[in-house]
Each structure stands twice: as C-alpha cells, then as structure tokens.
Design a protein around this nucleic acid. Sequence first.
DNA 1: GTTAGGG
DNA 2: CCCTAAC
Length: 673
Amino acid sequence: MVFHKRLDYGYSGYQVPPMPRVPSSARGKRSARRKAEEKPMCAFDMLATVAGELLSERENGLLLHKDGGTSIPAITKGVIKKENISHETPFKAEVFDQGSCNESALGSEKQVRYDPKECSLSPRTTGKDAREPVLSCKISEFGTPKKIRKEECSPALKVTCKSEDGIKTPFQGERRMFDNVVSGTGPEIFEDLMDVDAKPLALVSSASSVKVPIPRNPTFAKCSKGITVDGDDDENSSGCTNPRINTSKTFRPQCPSDHRIRKLFASKFWKVAPNDGELSNTEMKAIYRNRKLCYTREKTERCSFKRRKLFERRSISASNLDIYDEGVSPKLGCIKMEASDKHANLNAANGASSSTSGQKSSYESRDYHVKLNIKSFKVPELVIEIPENATVGSLKRTVMEAVTAILGSGLCVGVFHQGKKVRDDNKTLLQAGISHNDKVENLGFTLEPSYTLTPPSLLCPEDPNSIISSDTTEQLKIRIPDTPTTLELPAASDVTPKAPETLSSNCPESDHDSVPSPTDASSVDKTAYSKALLPVPSMNDALAVPVPSVNVDALAMVPLRKSRRTEQVQRRIRRPFSVSEVEALVQAVEKLGTGRWRDVKLRAFDNAKHRTYVDLKDKWKTLVHTARISPQQRRGEPVPQELLDRVLSAHAYWSSQQTKLQAKPLAEACLLA
DNA sequence: GTTAGGG
DNA sequence: CCCTAAC
C-alpha cells in the first residue's frame, strides 16, 4: 500500500508551492508565515507527518488531557483519589518548558504543593501497580503558571528536569537530533531552528521511542530533557508531558485522559458488542493504562499543526522505528531518508537554501524524497479480561476495539495462539485452546490491514485543475508493509517511491465502510491491498477501516446500553475534516460552486462514504465562518490561510453568480414586460 | 433524493 | 453533526 502524502501547508518546513488564485495582497499578509515555511523539512517534520497520519485516530479519539480535569476513568479502580493526597507535603518540581516557558525559569527547582485545583489524576501506565494514578498538575509557582508534567501522586518526590545546552524545549532537542541524523551536521544547524521554534510544541513523546542508530554524541545526551523522579526508575518517570529522547526503551503510551476517551473506553469496554450475545452478561474490562500527556494546548501552537497532529494523535507510536541517513548508517536504518530531485529543484528555483546556514550537507544536495521503512508500530498496553467462553471473534473484537480506540479502526486484529493463527471466530477461547491458565506468551495479536479490497478506484483521477501537482508539491510516500504489522514482532516492510501516475492525488479519505472486511485478512490475497494505492489523506481513514463485522460507524454507534440503543439512533461519530479534505472540498466548490453539494460529493468525496453531501455543505458553511473570524477564534486543526482565502473568494464568487442568476430572469422579465 | 438553513 | 422544510 502506498500512501501519497501531499504535505500540507503550515509548519512542515516544506516548500509551499506558489498558490494559485490567491491575490498577491493576500500572499503578502502571509509573508511571515511563508518565511517559516521555507525551512527545509527536517526528519522530525517528516516523522511527525508520517506518524501524524499513521497515528491518527478517528474523531480525535485520543484527546488532550484537559488541565485541571479529574481524569480518573471509571474503569480504574482503587486509584488514589486526589483529595487524599496530602496538601501539606510539598514536593519538588522543576519548570519544564511547554512552549511558553521563559528561559530563566527553565530548570529552576521549587518546592511546590499539591493543588487540587490545578492537578488531576490519571491512571498510571507502568510500574508495579499499574493502577497507581499519576498526578499531573499545573504549578503556578514559577512566575507564570507552568504546566508541569507528570508527578507522582506521592508527594515528597523530587522531580528534576534537565535543561542543558540552551535547548529551550524538548521539541527542539528532538528536532536537532533528527536534523543531525539527516544532515550529518553538527549542532550549528540548531541555531536556525531555534527561532523557528519560537512557539514549539511541548510534546515529542510520540517520537520518544524512536531509535536513532547514530552515534550518541554529547549533543544528543544534552537534548534529552526529561523528568526523573527520585526513587523511581526511568521507565516510570518518562512519558507524560516530558518528552524524552529515549534511544533504547520501548514505547510507553500516553494516557488518554480526556473525558471523551474515557467515555469511549467506558462505553466500549464495559458493554458488549450487541451482536455478541454470549458476552452480554459478562464482565469485559479493558483498562487502557498508559501515560498521561500533559500537553498544553496553546493557541500559539497553531503554527505547527502538522506536528500537533502527531502529538494529538499520539497513543500509538511508531516505535521500532529507525531512522538513518543513507550516508550515515545504511545498515542500521529502518527508515531511509533520501531526497528527490524534485524538491531540490524546487529549492533551487525558489532560491531558498537550507537553513543550515550554508552548510553543504548531504541533506541539501540530495533530493528530498523520503523513504520510510517502519518496522512496526507498538500499541499501548492494553489489559483485557474476557471470559473463557467468549468466542474468538469476540476476543478479536474486544482487542480491536481497544486498539481502534487508539489507532483508528483501519486494522483488524488477528489472533495467534501458540504460534498458530486462530482463524475461526466462532470458536470459543477454550475450544481454541485458549484458557485462563494459558501463558501470556502463547497468545499473540496482529494488526492486519483490513482494507484488503481496496480498489484502485480509490485513487482520485488526475485532476488537471488540481493545485496539487507533482511539480509543486512535495509528497511523502509511505508504503504499508505487505506483512501485517505485528503487535510484538517487527514486520519487515519495504518502501519504494510510488508510481508516477499516482503522484497527484487530492482525494479525501475513503471510508471503506462499505468494504466487507474479511474475517481473516491473511486469507485474502495480500497483493490486493499491498498494491492498492491510497492518497495520504486516506491514511486517517484507511486506518479507520472496518474490522470484522464492526465497521467504523458501527463501532461508534455501539451504545452504552441496549435500551438506549433502541430508544434513539446514535449520533454519528464526529470526524473533523482534515486539511486535505478541506482542500478537496475547496477545490470542488471552486469548480462547481455552492449549491451543488451532491456533485461536490461525487467529485471530491465519492470514496469517502462517511462524508455526505450534507456534511460537505455543512463543512463549507463552517469554513466560510472560519475564514471570517480571526485566527484566534478558530478551533481545531488549523486550516491553512491559503485555503480559507480560497473559501472566501469562492464563496464570494458563487454568491455573486447566484445573485446574477437571480437578477437575470428578473431583468429579462422586465425587458419582456 | 437534494438543497438550504437553523440548531 | 442533526433536524426539518421545501422542492
């Protein structure tokens, strides 16, 4: 499966192609922004982009931890209640930059007290007692309030945070790291990046487990800013707000503390799939324990929505994900980065040179196309209890629901028992030989692409009017391994540039809801999906492909209670439009005009089954509204101003057309009269 | 079934 | 995203 990514506007570091149809005046307003956009993409951008796409969950499934919110999912029992935490005993904490931290405060250490108003609890992911909650709080004792990462509930813990090397933010540290990897240049590259990251994102945790098989030079060590909690080992203290550059540890998931995800989990794990009668009386628990992501969502972070996408969509990490520069350590890498002439030319054409200040790095001189080879994706730890008389199918679904709650639902789950694949969904676990005294190692799960029937038609036909052309747009190509991604075992994958004819793609995601998902993905000709091409916008939803008998929407519609289900139809799941979708919509409306939503749908969203023409109309409505309000008032994933400009102009144009059309008959009537 | 608009 | 009216 090859995914085509047109890197979107915004702070990806990509060259942004000339924007057609945009008045020069409008461009002038964005000059500052464009300046930033002219930075070449660094590896981190790429990873963020890739991961952001790959890790996207539907409906922003995993949301940010809300400050101050009590975040004890109902499924966790016996957690320490935050009221029980001593308010008296202070603990030490250090300022850790979340993007708004001033440098002077960075690294400072203070005794702080637990403030129930500013703290929240979330279940703890790791450690001996996984249910021990993790306290995260905002401490306002450092001058301006600072978001503080994870704290242990037990007070009197000293929390330290390294701040070295002038690196203000973990993000920058990571970024430098990746730049080093890509370009092989030294720290000086960072100088340029610093100012770019004036408003950095706080989180890099999704990349925290990225292995970087390059020499661990001091620079890297210094980049590693994290929190260590006294009396706790490294494992237990990483995660949360504090991104770490963890070059050896395995991925640690974050905690979806948001109420929505709690709801999601509550609904999904406490109740039973409606079609699964044998489970209806049983207790089914899946405690999703992982780390809290004390991510401060700041308006100023809009500049980097690509990365934010990644961070917001964390929760599953492209762990076992190696990155290397061809010239550095080709043998080690699993992600291969290479450049394309296209980008290089573009760079030259724009007279833009790398921000590495004249350093002729390999990064500059090569083409910028990127090859990725992602070994595997690690899924956050899930704890699932299921009765022995449950069916294998229900087991799969249970796991799937847990996983899809994190991943999106583009994968289905395969079950292995003692190395053998369990294919019969109707067998009970016992019948399949899975019993309670089975060793954990005997059971394995795989993630398998469930878009096995993805037809080539998913590819959008080349649109001559598309502003996205191979000439002007950098694209990231990802090929999903033919081998199903395994939960435990890295799946080999190879990556090749996509075929030229697929270069241009502006197709919004397909939903695949209608694609009947085979019970056993492996029984289907793998070439069917391995050869299928999807535009990258599909990534989100390509991952949101139905699982056996539970498709995305069905999943979303599983009611909390049966009675309720019969009472009222569940509201459709909210699926925010991606920038790519917005772009497709804008393009279609530019062409077709408003008022022809069915045509717009057919033209640009034919494969996106979950987008009705009403949705498109509504989206256009909100787009127009968004374009009219100030950027500060906007919410959600930022829509590039360029698109909003186009929205306004298209809206104005078609409105005038409409009035003309209305006026014309009138005028003619008058003339006739 | 589509479109438009309020919620 | 839902609902409804209007066509």
